[in-house]
Design a binder for these strands. Structure first.
Lengths: 208, 208, 208, 208
DNA sequence: GATGAATGAGAATTCATTCAT
DNA sequence: TATGAATGAATTCTCATTCAT
């Protein structure tokens, strides 16, 4: 009984340290989850696997997350938070359609190349298990908005923004997949190809 | 003597009732699996779920397939067998780059619209669990070959065939995803958009 | 209907051939079972394993045997039928205690060395699963009788025949186990050791 | 601060309620396994059977043991730990061959009579499923060593120690089997018989 | 008699989650 | 809050056996 009192006292006495440990544990779990998702794929991964990749006890997991899915959403949020601002920023400043497209692909491929783990954890079958993932991460909504905005600014002709956004994202993911399978991850070449294709199509003059 | 003949004859008659039931059951399981995969997604689906979607006993499943994965491969094979020939045939006969691209998208979107289940079962997260699925179903290899061939015939400029194939497949899947979410599945509009984009790029003149 | 007639006719027409196939199949199953028991041990072996080691269909098994245990009893009977007469014959003709003991061990070890498979199939954990196996195979009853008889003939002093029979069989099996683990299966040496031990004990004069 | 101390103290106190329950459950499972092995034999016993003989939930079993085999090894270790020291101790102090042999048999039969369950659980067909069981439990290695040592001390003539050890163990197990089937478990009579046989052989003078 | 597919009980094992400490 | 043992539902898979052909 008095214990409650005392312990409460202790809790309020050192809130900083408590909070720090809490944030620490949260990051511990997220990091472990990312590693596990990359290793096993999202579907086969279990909460047990995540806990095992941690120094924490099984019960502790549930102080931070409700389920594996819950962890995944947190990870996705992290990735989105890291990627989306970069994408938007550059697109905002685009003066031409080429700037716009190139900025999008460039940011995307650079991220895919540098943050392999972020990307791998997301890229696994999660994409289709949670089909909005790609939209969330790459910011389909924002891309749509930006495209509409760009159409308004006269950068693009008036076309189906949703289709275009889908096409851009489809090309971005598939090309980045090919890129990651090649011996060297040539971000520039990938960006050049995707940009040229989206901008001028196959028929345009200067391939190579 | 003749008895032996007769009885043998009866037993091995044409497909025989036995063989017929066997093929029937195989199809029963495949059908159930397709429905289950569409409903739950591939990962969460269990062999039990598939059996439950069937009138058969649990053990019977294993007379036909080794595992859930085994069923999936059979389904994928089916889908590929249904889709790939259509794709190739039309591309073969293409006289122009536009024919080539349009034929590919048209066949793909038509298939996606008409064979929703085939497509949905494949399209689930299986795509990334079995990353070669898309290649198998849509025939990445054949697409690469056909592109190379088309380059040889002078239909296309000389570009990175693998990148282009990836881009086409990425656009095809993503656009078909958008299409399937819209109230009406306008195959023609989707085909027109994707073809125009890939062929002339965003910058080309006549959108709409 | 008339088929029944005809087929019956056929059956009675060539009874020899039928019977031959029947006996053939029985032997096929017994042989497969022995191999399987030796390979996997009796416990882990399944009827399926036995059938698989055969060219026959699963249902056919049940035309010949009721269960795995049933097969085992048949095998044991076979082994007993092969071993017991040899043992008895030689013991009958024994003129001295040494003859009696030596004959028993000699026949046993020779059998163990030559009929490894028979022996191995029996020797596995079946021994204790069916604890009477050893008695059946080695003929504990007959050994008891023969000992009693020998006591009557004055070959042995008057001792507890059951204990002695147990001791003989225990020594026989354990020594044969050691023998089979040695590089060469020296039946004579084993016989000599066991006979000397049982006859004169450790304390007797001429070991070596 | 002191709260931490107190709570920590409570949690880790001596064995602690947790640890105590854990050990309790371990013994619960081992006890159940022993009963089940005796009842059904090792081979036919299943993990389910063991769990069912317990008040615990199925999953709990796997918190303690990996498999049925794992339990068996634990039981065997227990039995060996209970039996072997008795055997060795008495043999060490043996002044004569008779002492040596008698001590071995006496300890063995006494154990067999008193610890029927220990013995029965081990004695089942496990013996041949895990052929080293007998050696482990009865200490074949130690017996060999002790025999060699005894030969060195001049207690025994120079004979094949491995053969002798095998013979002793064979006699011990078989005689104890006979003994256990008799209405009264006369440890002394069994010891006397086995000792006399091994020591002086059948031919020695004073049976009875 | 021979065949081999269907059956469904049952075995081993894992897992998310709870809760006493 | 952290811990980690207990839980029992759920899953995969095997097996002996039956029975229509």
């Amino acid at each position: 009984m008095d214990v409650t009192l005392t312990s409460t006292g202790a809790t309020t006495a050192a809130p900083g340290k408590r909070a720090q440990t809490k944030e620490q544990n949260r990051r511990l779990i997220l990091g472990a989850a990312r590693r596990v998702f990359v290793e096993l794929g999202y579907g086969p991964s279990t909460v047990r696997d995540i806990i095992r990749a941690t120094t924490l006890a099984s019960g502790t997991f549930y102080n931070y997350f409700k389920s594996k899915e819950d962890v995944f959403f947190a990870l996705r949020e992290e990735t989105a938070a890291a990627l989306k601002p970069k994408l938007r920023e550059e697109r905002r400043q685009a003066k031409t359609a080429e700037d716009f497209i190139a900025a999008t692909f460039s940011a995307f491929f650079a991220f895919a190349a540098s943050e392999k783990d972020h990307f791998a954890a997301i890229n696994t079958e999660t994409l289709h298990r949670h089909p909005d993932t790609l939209d969330v991460v790459a910011g389909l909504d924002e891309l749509c908005q930006d495209i509409d905005h760009a159409i308004g600014r006269g950068l693009f002709p008036s076309l189906d923004a949703e289709f275009l956004a889908a096409a851009i994202i489809g090309v971005a993911f598939e090309i980045s997949g090919v890129m990651q399978n090649r011996p060297i991850h040539d971000v520039q070449a990938s960006t050049r190809f995707a940009t040229a294709l989206l901008l001028g199509g196959i028929a345009h003059s200067d391939w190579q």
